[in-house]
Design a protein around this nucleic acid. Sequence first.
DNA 1: ATGAAAGCGCTAACAT
DNA 2: ATGTTAGCGCTTTCAT
Lengths: 355, 355
Amino acid sequence: MRVIDYSGRYAFADGAVKGAGKGGVAVATISDVARQAGVSTATVSRALNGKSTVDPALVARVRAAAEELGYHPNGLARNLRRQETAVLALIISDVENPFFTSIARGVEDVAQTAGYSVVLCNSDENADKEQRYIDVALQERVAGVVLSPTDVSSSVERLRHRGTPLVAVDRPLTECDQVLVDSRLAARQATEHLIGAGYRRIGCVTGPAGIRTADDRLAGYRDALDAAGRDLRLERRGEYRASGGRQATEALLAESPDALLVANSAMAIGVLEALGEAGLRLGRDVGVVAFDDVPWATLIDPPLTVVAQPAYEIGAAAARLLLARIAEPSLPPAATMLEARLIERGSTQRATSPR
Amino acid sequence: MRVIDYSGRYAFADGAVKGAGKGGVAVATISDVARQAGVSTATVSRALNGKSTVDPALVARVRAAAEELGYHPNGLARNLRRQETAVLALIISDVENPFFTSIARGVEDVAQTAGYSVVLCNSDENADKEQRYIDVALQERVAGVVLSPTDVSSSVERLRHRGTPLVAVDRPLTECDQVLVDSRLAARQATEHLIGAGYRRIGCVTGPAGIRTADDRLAGYRDALDAAGRDLRLERRGEYRASGGRQATEALLAESPDALLVANSAMAIGVLEALGEAGLRLGRDVGVVAFDDVPWATLIDPPLTVVAQPAYEIGAAAARLLLARIAEPSLPPAATMLEARLIERGSTQRATSPR
DNA sequence: ATGAAAGCGCTAACAT
DNA sequence: ATGTTAGCGCTTTCAT
């Protein structure tokens, strides 16, 4: 027999007062349900968790009691007892980048199917934030972590030390499960495409030194030029943002490039803005190929040639790897290398006429 | 799903065997630290939580012991004991929509400052998923929830019943803190802008019935036409995706609209594709104004006129509201109404000449 | 098949 | 200022 009072606490018939949750409303516990159903807490637990050893009649009673009381198991207590959580943490470096949100979708779909929830954290390309989120993941004892590492930092050491299953995406981490794309090769192919299209003064706009994808894409660019016996190097780095692309391009313009390989779609926005403002026609005056197949690639004129990375599949593969490791921690590290695909469009055709 | 790993256990000197975390590596607990530092667990707790009543010398000993053992407090146990979590859940309807990711950034920044972490969940415009994530939030006893509700559903009833602080964003929820944008007014103004620009056959491409923003924007469109004494209604609904926008537009084209108000930026992509394929010139043949200021708006030719919603500010305001309610649950519900801003660009100028 | 009871790791009274 | 102790709500032996 319970009485709700104004303060959000309720008194049992025996006079004991039970504190309520912060919300102010009393919340039913497993023992409330047990009392209501006239069974032990153990039986409630077994019944609600679908253990086969419980009398169907009791299961029904327990269910009814739980329903009536609006009982929701306390995940904290459950996880504490079980020493495990059905939560995966996904720490990405930019929530506003469609590449990473696609990865998130992939991780989520696979995790969901296996009964895990995914917690998405935005490290914002910032090692401190990354560290903070890793600490949270550690504290909350998540079952595993999918991470796109900001740098080769040792921030993951704590995870390692604690033995938390981890898989890296997009950027490599030594001795770790990972799902990567062969960025260097893709950049090389994209650059070769530019060469093949007849561009002579090919530049590269890439991200900050230390971010592996930025370095790899620059390396791929050089690979292609080397192989073609081209000497001219027009390279510029910037933040992986529109502003970074814009600044890099403005600087590069002094050297009159006639084509640009852009390492990231956020940068591409800045690059295209800068080109437009300089009165340069896309494709005709300056060819552009950018990493990541953004939804608006076909809306610009001429449409943008891109290096499409299989983002969703990266996420899905990472989640599968993570689940496998959670199930079997002693597995040797596995690296999955996915391929990017060049999608040729008008922005790399010198003879393009505006539609 | 659980695997017991014998290899990951360690034996204490006294022969007792302590279970290890799932990862297989033994994890230090507060009593390990206490033993190592030669103090009680209470002192460890106090020292590590910065309680002022602890001897500085002991604090140092404890810190050292914790460091040495690689101790990380178990958040599960802490939260269970404290009956509260420093985690906020943000359930949004589309991670791939920049509008929502901007909201996420806003929520995150404010929460971060207050010492809360944000868990991002993607309901995917799907009531079932939304329900599932709400249940997870309930189970994990998050401190509060920010939600962009899929519909007027009763899925939040459980949250209410449990007393979990909740704030709705983007779409209203009765008797609830909320941060909204006056979509209807914004849609009306956008339509009036179209009328003022000389368009005669103005259509509206909006989202599914039942999604409040979709309905409101349609209503605003009608308001403007009514006020202007226009009879012609060209309305079509579709999913809040590119494909939805494309289909709606293809259908609408039969009625020769000369302008379109598009209720969502994802839809806008499909709309623009359909227009392009039909050989219609943006602005000149068909004026377009779309909701949400996407980063690529200025890259298309002519640049896209948009209704810019203060997404980041919505998220920040929602987080502030939520934190206030967590601190003081008895506050009366507060509704914050933010304004959208029409940004006029070339896509709504009939006389535009391609740059 | 069911119950009693022992914790999971932590914090907060309550002692000292 | 520090230690002792009692739980938070749950699952899971171990009895019965």
